[in-house]
């Protein structure tokens, strides 16, 4: 897994650049890692922590996004940014190095795991790159907002 901070940063960048609800994209980017609930079950010694594994599959994560979207005034308008966030999570995790296997993209129709082995989960350089990219985008948006404000004041 990539760390949560990288996921939220990539979610934030995606939300900002696609002009979506940034907060919901960021929340969506963390949905697949709700699977970590299984750590609590393992720690408590309760049976079958595997029960939660489908949360880290696209269909499972989109179902959770759908459930969350119900609590918003416009379900569709909430589901779209949540879904974009979920997608950024899987795109980022898709490039993780493992000895074998990968994300079960087509579960429950197929149990096969897919992965492109590009970077290791313990590689903190990815977080640094995501942080720098987020800072650059924040600076660009801040500069444009400031410029727009000064133009309005002049008029």
């Amino acid at each position: 897994m990539s760390d949560w901070f990288t996921h939220t940063l990539v979610g934030w960048i995606t939300g900002k650049t696609t002009k979506q609800d940034v907060a919901l994209v960021v929340i969506g980017s963390l949905i697949p890692d709700l699977v970590k609930i299984n750590l609590a079950f393992t720690w408590l010694g309760l049976s079958d922590p595997q029960f939660f594994e489908p949360l880290h599959t696209p269909i499972g994560a989109f179902l959770v996004a759908g459930i969350i979207a119900i609590f918003f005034p416009d379900i569709r308008k909430a589901f779209v940014p949540l879904g974009i966030g979920v997608s950024t999570h899987f795109i980022l995790d898709f490039f993780l190095v493992h000895v074998r296997g990968g994300i079960k993209l087509l579960y429950p129709f197929s149990w096969e795991g897919w992965q492109v082995y590009l970077y290791r989960s313990d590689d903190y350089l990815i977080t640094v790159i995501a942080l720098l990219a987020a800072l650059v985008i924040y600076a660009i948006y801040w500069y444009h907002a400031k410029r727009k404000k000064s133009l309005i004041t002049k008029q």
Binding site: D3, W4, V22, A23
Partner: peptide
């Protein structure tokens, strides 16, 4: 390096909560 993954994950929680509850 493995432990650092969890340490790096920690800022995500306040970051996501702040973004969310400042909007909703």
């Amino acid at each position: 390096k493995d432990d650092l993954i969890y340490v790096r994950s920690l800022p995500a929680i306040p970051f996501a909560l702040y973004l969310f509850f400042s909007t909703w």
